[in-house]
Write a protein that binds this DNA or RNA. Structure first.
Lengths: 167, 167
DNA sequence: GCATTTTAGTTCATATATGAATTATTCAAA
DNA sequence: TTTGAATAATTCATATATGAACTAAAATGC
């Protein structure tokens, strides 16, 4: 039985606990939280994203995004813009100050990133990323198979079989 | 420049986002949160831990631990016991129900764990864990060196040099 | 066309995360 | 032994995380 402390989730949490404080200290100097920076960065780099795409890119839930955008816009760093094509959609745009702050902070973020990167050599990072990708791919495949199996049996139960397959 | 999405933190977050929902669904069936399970598990497995040790083992901050213990003890799963040797210390103990719940849930947790484990073979896991450990070791070493350097210069500034070294 | 279903964003309630400050004890130096 | 530094736990204020429900606006089926 694998010990609790050696499980993948705990290993991931432990790494994050070790790595993130340096970033948070930097963000705090500019009165930002980690999540606020994540959002500011994608809004700044893309100049114009839907809330949905921003949520996907930052790995923030739509619910969390609402509050984060609220606070960033209260600080005058980001603006909400309702789409005219589809009035359900909200675009997020950086303000001039938002762009300026992004430019100010990014180099420091990259510096911290380099510090982390220095812990492994290039081959090791390649290996690590490859393993990450493999876990993700295999995991998603498992889920997809499970879902399809369920879907098929559900359709059978309902007496109709729709010929749609996973994209 | 490494893209935001490929940075180590985002990769770690993405993996967790993918892996944890299955666990949370399980815990929810037993009216527990992820963090409550983490704490219940260490309290249950060790039968008696200080709050401090529990915090370290679960990677929960002492502040968060307070609320989590409050709720677990409100549910009758865990008990607080003030140490008589050192009245600052609080021991956490499982109740009978806490033990029973631990026994009930653990097998399911291990099952989910196996599902994740199946995404890589043994060698790959060994490699992955080795890389994790290396990142941690190198990272801590960097920090320690940086701290010592700072400490030395600080002592010099203060005009006294204490001969203590890092343990 | 109109009812039905989806979809994007939001709100709500509850549980955590985080940095700062407090309390109660214990430890340690003069 | 008495005062000041360290410790363990807690409290506080603010920001997020998460699951559930809601609103408004599209897309879809008939």
């Amino acid at each position: 039985m694998i010990a609790f402390e050696q499980s993948l989730p705990m290993r991931l949490y432990r790494l994050l606990d070790m790595i993130m404080p340096a970033y948070r200290a930097l963000f705090a100097e500019h009165d930002l939280t980690e999540q606020q920076w994540r959002l500011l960065r994608v809004v700044w780099e893309r100049e114009r994203v839907t809330a949905q795409d921003a949520a996907a890119a930052t790995l923030l839930s739509p619910q969390s995004l609402v509050g984060i955008v609220d606070r960033l816009s209260a600080k005058g760093l980001v603006t909400r813009l309702r789409s005219v094509d589809d009035r359900r959609v909200v675009y997020l745009l950086p303000t001039a100050e938002g762009r300026a702050l992004g430019e100010t902070i990014l180099p420091h973020v990259l510096a911290i990133h380099e510090q982390t990167r220095a812990t492994l050599d290039d081959d090791e990072w390649t290996t690590l990323n490859g393993l990450f990708d493999k876990i993700q791919d295999e995991f998603l495949e498992e889920r997809t198979n499970a879902r399809d199996t369920q879907a098929v049996s559900r359709r059978r139960t309902e007496g109709r079989l729709i010929g749609r397959r996973r994209s």
